[in-house]
Amino acid sequence: MNASLPAPFSTTLRDVDRYWRTSGVPRSERRDRIHELRTHLEDAAAQGRGPEDVVGPDALAFAAEWILADRRHPWASAALRFVGMLAVGWGAVAVLFPHLPGVSSAPGIQTLGMMSIPALSVLGKDVTQMNRGRLGRRRVAALALAAVLVAGAGGAALGYLQATRGPVVEVSAGAGAALVLVGVVALVIAWRLRLTPRGRASGRPAPTA
């Protein structure tokens, strides 16, 4: 991908590419952006300039800012993704739980709490991404640590509730199926909001004039 670029440039390009990949940027769109950034870095290198002159001191903040600028309603997309994942997770558990061997009742709050962890992780990642430029590396690391601690405390609290009071909230299989449906709709809308003009325009012909 970056064989001809000097080391600091290729490192920047690799970091940005990895960030976009882990942020769920569609592959074709990611490749398109990387090509554009790569040619810019090549031009900068040819002019004797450094990668910081192009992306600034924090390459990941640059990557986050660029990707968010393309998206419509990034906050709405993040919220819908969170709600969708939560609903699908809870609904799937509610539907499947009664069919699991050795289980006699509907899922309790602890199970639903455990199923919330992936949705909360994704929400945390989305929020961090949207504020990457303002937060900086240290604050992002501190936030990640705080999130892990809060998740641990929440899990312990749910475990205590489950142990002392039994299933506090029960979700029936019918309600679970409805939750899955709502969740899928939310995820589809969130996915559509993440599409950008760049992705839609791939394959547009160059002008002849």
């Binding site: 810019h40 600034g56 660029w66 600028a69 003009p197 325009a201």
Partner: peptide, 24 residues
């Protein structure tokens, strides 16, 4: 203006259909 800061702006212009991109 840092070079890279133009890309988010260009992306916003493209999203608002004020400019369009093509590859050569």
């Amino acid at each position: 203006v840092r070079d890279g800061s133009i890309y988010p702006l260009v992306a916003r212009l493209e999203r608002r259909n004020l400019i369009e991109g093509y590859v050569v």
